[in-house]
């Protein structure tokens, strides 16, 4: 169980990204976070693994206080939390294999890993992870030689290397076309069914209805909705995205259908 309590983030330049956000995520949920760009979705996800340190508030995960963890413990927490990014965040010049192995760094012997020496079990694990996302044949390709959809699958394989209990996906399909979106989210759904908790930010309403087990919505850093995906009707959506976003919503829903 992940518990977020009164989370507030104010950036040094004064931008208030999150205001007093509280919610809980039970193990095995597929929680989708929706909201306009700049509503605080990315900040929220990054506060959970403390890529961004929250200004106020507390995040606890099975009685571990993430917000108070010292660096060494924070790394041990992070290695159990996989993360998937909108821009994939792969090392473009490195091979797919190297990128996938990077997901294992949190478990590796720090010194041997610097020399690029990996236990054979980790290598097998990487091959399995690549097989799982269907791109084992690309292992020796350079990451930037792959298409966007393939790169995101490398991103998921990298997260799998962590054997995570929780996956944070920050708009994992926003850079991909609708067909690929489904294939990527399908992988996350499978992982979720195997027991991984997923917290995922999304833009498209139909994807929300299709994959989410629960939804929270942010607007200007404030949680404006928490409930089941079915509860988000047209009126709710208008409330979350604002009047002027109506047109955009219509086209995005059509485009992704």
């Amino acid at each position: 169980m992940l518990r977020i309590q009164n989370l507030t983030k104010v950036y040094p330049n004064g931008t208030q990204a999150l205001k007093d956000v509280s919610f809980e995520v039970k193990d095995g949920e597929f929680l989708v976070v929706i909201g306009l760009s700049g509503s605080g979705k990315s900040t929220l996800l990054r506060c959970i693994n403390r890529l961004i340190d929250p200004t106020e508030g507390k995040i606890t995960w099975d009685d571990i206080d993430i917000t108070a963890a010292p660096p060494a413990e924070l790394r041990r927490i992070r290695r159990q939390i996989g993360m998937v990014f909108q821009q994939f965040n792969l090392v473009k010049r490195s091979s797919v294999m190297t990128n996938v192995m990077n997901g294992r760094l949190g478990y590796a012997n720090p010194w041997l890993s610097l020399l690029g020496i990996w236990p054979p079990t980790d290598k097998q694990r990487a091959v399995k992870a690549l097989e799982r996302v269907g791109i084992a044949d690309k292992a020796s390709s350079r990451a930037d030689a792959l298409s966007g959809g393939q790169q995101q699958r490398v991103g998921i394989a990298r997260a799998l290397m962590q054997e995570p209990r929780l996956v944070l996906a920050d708009e994992p399909v926003a850079s991909l076309d609708p067909v690929l979106s489904h294939s990527i989210l399908h992988y996350l759904e499978q992982l979720n069914k195997e027991g991984m908790t997923v917290i995922c930010s999304l833009h498209f309403l139909d994807l929300v209805h299709r994959y989410a087990t629960r939804v929270i919505a942010l607007k200007d850093g404030i949680k404006v909705f928490e409930g089941l995906p079915a509860e988000i009707d047209r009126a709710k959506f208008k409330e979350i995205y604002g009047e002027e976003a109506q047109e955009v919503r219509a086209t995005t829903v059509e485009a992704s259908a």
Binding site: L51, R75, M83, T98, L114, A159
Partner: peptide, 19 residues
């Protein structure tokens, strides 16, 4: 991006620089 990704996976500072 890759720095963020490796930090998120629990890599230490040296590993982030190296990879």
């Amino acid at each position: 991006g890759p720095i963020e990704a490796l930090q998120a996976s629990g890599a230490n500072r040296m590993q982030v620089v190296r990879f």
